[in-house]
Design a protein around this nucleic acid. Sequence first.
DNA 1: CGTTGCATGTAAGGTGTTACATGATTAC
DNA 2: GTAATCATGTAACACCTTACATGCAACG
Lengths: 220, 220
Amino acid sequence: MKSADGPNVTATGWALLGVLSYQDELTGYDMKKWTEWTLRFFYGSPAYSQIYTELKKLENIGLVSSRVETDGGARSKRLYRITEAGLDALTTWADQAPVDAPQLKHNPLLRVMFGHLTNPRRLKEIMQEHVAYADRMQREAALDARWAEVEPAWAYGRVALKWAERYYAAERELALDLIKDLDEAEESFAKATETGHRTPSLSRDYWYEIERKVQAEEGE
Amino acid sequence: MKSADGPNVTATGWALLGVLSYQDELTGYDMKKWTEWTLRFFYGSPAYSQIYTELKKLENIGLVSSRVETDGGARSKRLYRITEAGLDALTTWADQAPVDAPQLKHNPLLRVMFGHLTNPRRLKEIMQEHVAYADRMQREAALDARWAEVEPAWAYGRVALKWAERYYAAERELALDLIKDLDEAEESFAKATETGHRTPSLSRDYWYEIERKVQAEEGE
DNA sequence: CGTTGCATGTAAGGTGTTACATGATTAC
DNA sequence: GTAATCATGTAACACCTTACATGCAACG
């Protein structure tokens, strides 16, 4: 089973192998830096502790090898290198692994979803904070995309970083559009509650009825 | 400490409380359905098992209460209701919880990042698949946004779903732009490797040097 | 009368985080 | 000399998922 499915490696594991595929010896510390310059924009940057654990696991299954360098002085570090088996597995993964759907956990949007529990001013504040975040990320991605241009062999990294740059620009615009929609929502919600129109039952039956209606319309 | 920080509730916990804040009795099963109609687009939908576990936890700390209904026949279900303490905690959260940055795990982009390990055709295939995914999500979010219009009190949910609709539209465009960039990247990368230009060292020193350069330029 | 939907839960495991602990080296 | 960076690791735990187990009800 193992050779057919490929070894059991996590996404983070593949990412680390990917870094090492640029053929060099690197410490866990270096790889953390690398993820902070690149992956962080679209995949997050794993904690040091996870990187070290992951590297050990990869070494156990033979996808990487390591040696300890005692750098003249007393400070020692462990340098990792991808093995042939590692490069094989990685190439197979890059080519054949199924495309997993992106996973998103968007806290600001969660707050909007439950906007009826706070006041519109606060909600806009939350979204403004998100706009600032998107701004910052866009600038940082742009900066990193620029240094990726220095080296032709980093072409794919540059493409990913340019995507990130645009992604955060879009995130910003989306947030601004949402802020505009908020006024309307407030009005609609206020009217709904003030006119004695009870907060609607979220009961199963009620939902299903609406769903049926919408799908019937859809069917036309 | 507890009353100052608010009870220890996970994001999923708050989401469930949020659902119940619409004041009704709901089963865990119902709440799962609800998350699939809404949260799934920007926060994912938790597994049944997690919902049931979470509800038990919420009941233990007194934020929800439950009763078992033996529906005439033998089939029994547990109906949950938010308590006053729950509504208090939830309102405080909605108002005062810090805005967490969105978390993204974008598998297709990870694949692009390591595009040098596969061929450009396959990479485009992967991105096309992602375009199809974004299309599907957009359509589904649009549909759900429409049924949210039926009920004025769902105004905030509608805003969130409209955001999702636009988000997946943007995701699609971003992917198409990326596919265009891929040709250029391929060329650049091919040239870099074929002209004997060795895959660059990713060594610490090399990176840092470039970073310094870029930041120096930036400083101007 | 069989499939789909309703409804709940346990067990096990994986993935990841934070906090803690340690100590050398480099830059200002 | 002191702050930041380099460098590695352990322990604890939070969160979440899959797989499994169960059984009634409704629809065709």
